[in-house]
């Protein structure tokens, strides 16, 4: 590797050593942790700590438990019986059937919209952030620092601060109240780019890129076959983050959308909830809908929390 022969940035050699360093540290860490766990455990302490953690778990799980119970009740029972226990009449399937069929299946439509916004949005946002982060990490080009500085500023700009002006902008462009008005802002993740840059810096080896070049692969091909594969752990984290972010977003669709056919599930369910005062049947629709909307996410959170641990937080914390 001679200094003049290639383009990547000068601190690549440094990142190489940090990459191997952190790999070694990770190995050390995982070994050390096992020995940690076996030592210094006393039964009394285990019981106390576990009881404390269990009590805290009750706090975090109570609302979810309540909605499971509430979704099995008829509207009368909802008010007449204790909220933490089931009523004699078990109306869960009826309730869920009404949720799905109400208003020509609008609930399923909202759900599909959310899947579209969050799924497509997170997938593309991850790809764009990966490409941008890789470019910033692996090439020295004019304007690189300016771009990075701007994006870093973008991380700190509150999402809701841009939503109002974005609405003004999109209405002038005729994009307000369309799928695009929610999808386009979801495709950008400054935080994701920030993370991908750190990760690419630390893991994508300059000599590997050089080897790819010697083999005659184009720069873009090197990124798509080599870069993306090496960056996968970071990409999973960016994807999950963006997915949850878009799925949970409320302010942006609220500002942008007026046509209820375009609503994501958050907006739709709140629309139902706001009608409970006039029509009590909406209590059942809302609790049933909340239950149905939580189930896939709860499963996703439990399955995916192991992926969450690594990349994202370590990278961001170190920076």
């Amino acid at each position: 590797m001679t200094a003049t022969a290639h383009t990547p940035v000068e601190n690549d050699t440094r990142s190489l050593t940090t990459a191997s360093d952190s790999a070694r540290a990770a190995r050390r860490r995982s070994r050390g942790h096992d020995s940690d766990r076996s030592a210094g455990r006393s039964p009394g302490k285990t019981i106390i700590v576990t009881v404390v953690l269990a009590l805290v778990a009750v706090y975090f799980l109570v609302p979810a438990y309540w909605v499971v119970v509430a979704a099995t009740k008829t509207t009368e029972d909802l008010f007449a019986t204790n909220g933490f226990w089931f009523a004699p009449t078990f109306a869960l399937w009826e309730n869920l059937g009404r949720v799905i069929s109400y208003d020509g299946g609008v609930f399923l439509r909202w759900f599909a919209n959310s899947v579209l916004y969050a799924g497509v949005g997170a997938l593309l946002a991850t790809y764009f952030a990966a490409a941008g982060g890789y470019a910033l990490a692996k090439y020295a080009f004019r304007g690189r620092d300016t771009i990075f500085g701007l994006v870093l500023g973008g991380v700190l700009v509150p999402g809701t601060a841009t939503a109002l002006p974005l609405f003004l902008l999109f209405s002038q462009m005729g994009l307000a109240n369309t799928y695009w008005s929610v999808l386009l802002p979801s495709l950008v993740s400054p935080f994701g780019l920030f993370l991908c840059r750190i990760y690419a810096n630390a893991t994508v080896d300059a000599s590997l890129i050089e080897a790819g070049r010697i083999d005659g692969a184009s720069e873009l091909r090197i990124f798509h076959t080599l870069g993306l594969r090496i960056m996968t752990p970071a990409l999973v984290t960016v994807f999950l983050f963006q997915l949850v972010g878009i799925w949970n977003n409320y302010f942006l669709p609220l500002v942008m959308l007026s046509d209820s056919d375009l609503f994501p599930i958050t907006l739709g369910l709140n629309n139902w909830r706001s009608q409970v005062d006039r029509l009590p049947e909406f209590y059942e629709l809302t609790t049933g809908g909340v239950l149905l909307s939580i189930i896939p996410l709860a499963i996703a959170m439990i399955v995916l929390q192991r992926f969450w641990r690594g990349g994202l937080t370590e990278g961001s914390v170190k920076a």
Binding site: G132, Y139, L150, T162, L168, L184, L187, V188, P190, E219
Partner: peptide, 25 residues
Amino acid sequence: SGGAAPWVLIAPFLALFVLTFILPI
């Protein structure tokens, strides 16, 4: 400086960043 490759790679992000962050600000 890597030719146009870095710009091609960062272009989609940058375009969307300008549209949804810089312009609204």
